[in-house]
Computed example of a mutant assay.
Amino acid sequence: MSQKRKRIVVAMSGGVDSSVTAALLKEQGHEVIGMTMQIWDYASFTSGHGETFGSCCSLDDVHDARRVAESLDIPFYVVNFEKDFQQAVIDRFCDDYFAGRTPNPCVLCNQVLKFELLLRRARELEADYLATGHYARIVAEGDGYALCKGLDPAKDQSYFLYTLTQEQMERVLFPLGGMTKDEVRAHAARFALRVAEKAESQDICFVPDGDYVRFLEEERGAGKMDGEIVHVSGTVLGRHCGTYRYTIGQRRGLGIAWPSPLYVVGIDAASRQVLVGEKEHLSVGSLTLHGVNWSLSAPEGPLRAACRIRYRHQEVPSTITPLGGGRAQVDFDQPQKGVTPGQAAVFYDGDRVLGGGWIE
């Protein structure tokens, strides 16, 4: 080995990425401990919904993680974060939708569950690092660290990790950040891992069938957010059965007649109105963020950066102005469509993440 043996906890989700992460680190000679988060009462979920999870974090995934750990001959633990997940992710998910926002639960899960709670558990085991299967890189930079994109642009997950602090990056490893998915699957086959060909999850883990409206109504009840569909001109065009059924940019399912195509351009939860307008009404020149995290210290004044307003959004040149109190304003060089309250906006300088925050 070219480096000193370390004790490393690997966040094992039961998928191919985290399994290969554990296998590679053990191959390098490190002391590896597998740890899986139980974030849901699976018995309660299946009895209440008549189905099993079909995405990440399912009971099958826990079993897969355990079997992989056994095949690698490493210790394995399941940590129960059900209450934390309910409070930090699910409650926030519901709160956002009922407040007219479209949430991004994966950012919160990474921020709170993995890199606060799980990292704390790793430190309690006197581990040197927590490793995950994310496609991103942490690069030493001067006296600190920089979060950078994964080298595979199709798999880069840096957008979901912008909340990482300097203290966390010092204790976190992303061994797959320099690999492609094909390379990772080749490693999985080389290690003869049972999950080598396992399909990737695509859905929100706690809404496996994709029916988030049903999930919200089971959590909070139906009929509380019914109201009017209103054109930007002020004309009432019809009624809707819940503001949480709509998101910015939505065109289908409006159920109203108009001479030209209409899109959802705003949601006013206080008045329970869904605002619609023509395509040109979707474009905005700026946005405001709260809960901003800077990878290093906040800049003293405006700075130029590329801004990504959704995971699959093409970054656009922008001016970012800190406003104090964890807030910032983003002014786009060119107006952008589909700016959605509740989503994250992340700033980049090339491959390097400068920071990000929640769209107001």
Rank of each mutant, 00 (worst) to 15 (best):
M1A: 14
R5P: 03
V10D: 00
M12W: 08
G15L: 01
D17E: 11
S18R: 01
S19K: 03
T21Q: 00
A23R: 00
W40C: 10
F45D: 04
G48H: 10
H49N: 14
T52W: 11
G54P: 02
V62R: 05
D64R: 06
D64N: 05
A65V: 07
A69P: 03
A69H: 04
E70I: 08
E70W: 10
F76Q: 04
V78I: 15
N80Y: 12
F81N: 00
F81L: 05
E82L: 11
F85A: 09
F85C: 07
D91Q: 11
R92H: 12
D96V: 05
R101T: 05
N104S: 11
N104Q: 06
P105A: 06
L108A: 06
L113Y: 03
K114C: 02
F115P: 00
L117H: 02
L118S: 03
A127L: 00
D128W: 02
L130T: 00
H134A: 03
G144E: 03
P153M: 08
P153K: 03
Q157M: 11
F160W: 14
F160Q: 04
Y162L: 01
L164M: 10
T165A: 09
T165Y: 10
R171L: 13
V172D: 02
L173M: 14
F174T: 06
L176F: 11
L176E: 03
G177P: 00
G178T: 14
E183L: 09
A189N: 12
A192H: 15
R194W: 08
F206P: 00
V207M: 03
E217L: 10
R220S: 03
A222Q: 10
A222L: 08
G227V: 07
I229W: 00
T235L: 14
L237W: 06
R239K: 15
G242I: 09
Y244E: 06
Y244F: 14
G249I: 06
G249S: 12
L254Q: 02
P259G: 05
L262F: 12
Y263F: 14
V265D: 02
I267Q: 01
D268H: 13
V274N: 02
L275H: 04
E278N: 07
E280R: 15
V284P: 01
V284I: 13
T288I: 06
H290K: 12
G291S: 10
W294D: 02
E300A: 15
R304K: 13
C307P: 00
R308T: 12
I309M: 12
I309T: 14
I309Y: 12
R310D: 15
Y311M: 13
Y311R: 15
R312C: 12
H313S: 15
P322V: 10
P322I: 07
A328C: 05
V330D: 01
P341A: 10
V346R: 05
Y348N: 04
Y348I: 08
Y348L: 06
G350W: 10
D351Y: 12
R352K: 09
R352D: 04
G357Y: 03
